[in-house]
Amino acid sequence: MATWSSALAAHLVPARVLEQRETGGRMGTGMAEVDGATGGGWPRGALSEVAGPRSSGKTTLLLMSLGNALAAGEAAALVDVGGGLDPRWAQTLGVHLSRLLWVRCDADQALPAADMVLGAGGFGLLAIDFGDQQARAPTGAWQRLKRTAAEQRTALLVGAPYRPPGALGKVALRMAPGMPRFAYGAGPALLLQLQAQAQIERTQNTNDIDVPRELNLHWQRKSVAG
């Protein structure tokens, strides 16, 4: 028995090695600060996480990443828990609507739906936006999703209020809302800008001391009043 175990041991690959296996390539986020801090964006064939409460900018970051992927000629999909996507606002973020695969579902259907999209193959980026709902799924489901993403070389991006337990993304950002900027004049006040702080909790660039661990991000409101 001991001989068998030692013979098999040579063929076994520890889970943490599988976890770190690099499948190559990155999908840009469309934000230079985030790209710089994460080593070029979301890694292909791996799971990345963006966690934060309402108004922390995670939806915008997800949509910008999708727009960037579509502009690069990649196929991209959004699994949208609650169906909160606003196509008009997404368009201003550079999302080519007719080329984005949009799946509206509830929280329980999100992972099976994502698994189906990944299984089809050929997608460069798949984003799952849980909105303000918590992503509850067993660790095994996340592992399965990660394995499929690795096989298909798809960058898998998950946005949720908290980092899903068991997901263990290769890149993880925790975002917090900042102070918004309003313009005041003769008429009613006008929202101008949303600010947020992003803390990089997990990345492969841990040895690079020049990479900032905390980022200040801001987004302008589109020039449409009301």
Binding site: L63, L217, Q220
Partner: peptide, 8 residues
């Protein structure tokens, strides 16, 4: 970078 919205 432009701002996005998430709807109910």
């Amino acid at each position: 970078p432009q701002l996005g919205i998430r709807r109910y």
